[in-house]
């Protein structure tokens, strides 16, 4: 489903079209559920995130203000899972901004053409010393100080590894979108 198709479905949803809602759900529910399940580790909580997020899409579709819908959806799903993690633990990082219109990162086309398999393959190419802190930070919402403590590595080293790991990951992913 292209970005434009998602936008068109959302426009129909704004007009109360339940078929469009079903189509959007069928296309993106696995992604939202997968993110929530990966972050929360239990099916019931992941279902709660999935249900509340799609219900919000139905009742408040204006919350999506444009940009890359899939990237926005991922951020909202992550933020909702972070809310639950925050209830479980004090060590949870800040939410990512959901307003992609104001976030010029949305101009990047990287996310448009990727899928699960190629991101997983790119992650697998990262050395563990970079991959582990990146995954802890993103999927468990752990702030960098806590990551450093958990993997018993100096904070400065963790920061450097996360940055260099993200650059390397970008390099692995970029050929997929080369024109």
């Amino acid at each position: 489903m292209s970005v434009n198709e998602a936008d068109m479905l959302l426009e129909r949803i704004r007009n109360g079209d339940t078929k469009a809602f079903e189509q959007l759900y069928d296309r993106y529910s696995r992604l939202v559920f997968g993110i929530a399940l990966r972050m929360l580790g239990d099916t019931a909580s992941a279902e709660d995130v999935l249900q509340s997020l799609f219900f919000m899409l139905w009742t408040s579709p204006h919350r999506y203000r444009g940009g890359n819908f899939r990237a926005w959806l991922c951020r909202v799903a992550r933020n909702r899972a972070l809310d639950i993690l925050r209830q479980r633990s004090a060590h949870v990082s800040a939410e990512l901004t959901e307003d992609l219109v104001l976030d010029h990162a949305t101009e990047d086309s990287l996310n448009h053409h990727l899928d699960r398999a190629c991101v997983q393959a790119a992650l697998a190419q990262l050395p563990a010393e970079q991959r582990v802190p990146i995954e802890l930070g993103f999927f468990e919402g752990i702030p960098h100080e806590e990551i450093a403590r958990r993997i018993a590595t100096p904070l400065g080293t963790v920061k450097t590894r996360i940055r260099s790991g993200l650059h390397r990951l970008r390099k692995f992913l970029t050929p997929e979108v080369a024109p």
Partner: peptide, 22 residues
């Protein structure tokens, strides 16, 4: 940030549920 934020967003795609059990 413009370079790395989409890379961060792309990480989420790796979690997409592909298993039939879901």
């Amino acid at each position: 940030y413009a370079l790395l934020a989409p890379t961060g967003d792309a990480l989420a795609l790796s979690a997409e549920s592909g298993a039939q059990e879901y």
